[in-house]
Amino acid sequence: MKQELLFLPTLVTIKEIKPEIPAVATFRLPKPDGFSHKAGQFLEVSLFGKGEVPISISSPPSYEDLLLTIRNSGYVTGAIHKLKEGDVLGIRGPLGNTFPYEEYEGWDVIFVGGGIGLAPLRSLLWEMLYHRDKFGRILLLYGARSPADLLYPWQYEEFERNGVEILLTVDRGDEKWTGNVGVVTTLFDKVKIEPERTVAYVCGPPIMIRFAMRDLVEKIGIAPHNCIATLERHMKCGVGKCGHCVIAEKYVCIDGPVFRYPEIKMLERYDDPW
């Protein structure tokens, strides 16, 4: 990133707003000139007069547009949700580190998502589907509070067509729900994988990441090094200056947001990464 653009957002016009589930919508933005990102990175999205929020990129690097799935959870995101197509947003980025995945070519992949946590994983999932022959089995274990809260339901069929094995679960089912009920870790009993050649990517609410990572290592037997999670923190600058996102000595905006399990375990000793 050019230094003069460190705090100066690039202006983009919203192409499309697609409501997903209650309080969540996907915003389609054009890529500014010379923009390229990698799976796992995030953007600082500014709405002038309201502020800036860090939002992970949900579209794969090879896709022509930027897709940002934003939940209405605060002051700025609430204002962003009131915008219409054609309105202007500022973006800074891409920021942060990336999901390591090139080193795992030929391996099986397991994605574990919870709630809105599917949004950052979607970038990597699609990137792998664009290069489907390079990876073995791809599993998606995804849980949400209720069937209505399952993110991207319109896309599950396309995922399955591309050879993704999807297992869904909800905390509370409704009268139409016939699938699994329980937290996402209950799905671990239902999958049979070879742990020594499997990599896991996890994202979700902090408590879910914590237990999912633990079970992946202890129950399924994946090496801790190959359990990769992306964390979320409140950020102001996104470039390692303001100090809000720090966990122990790691700045989530520069050293993260993607961490491996041993790193997070190390942070847990000094601070509360969850």
Binding site: S46, F48, G49, K50
Partner: peptide, 18 residues
């Protein structure tokens, strides 16, 4: 040296401060 960032103004005119 930690700081916070705020936007002061409305959607038409204003400034961002730390």
């Amino acid at each position: 040296f930690c700081y916070t960032v705020v936007d002061i103004g409305d959607e038409n005119e204003g400034y961002r401060a730390r």
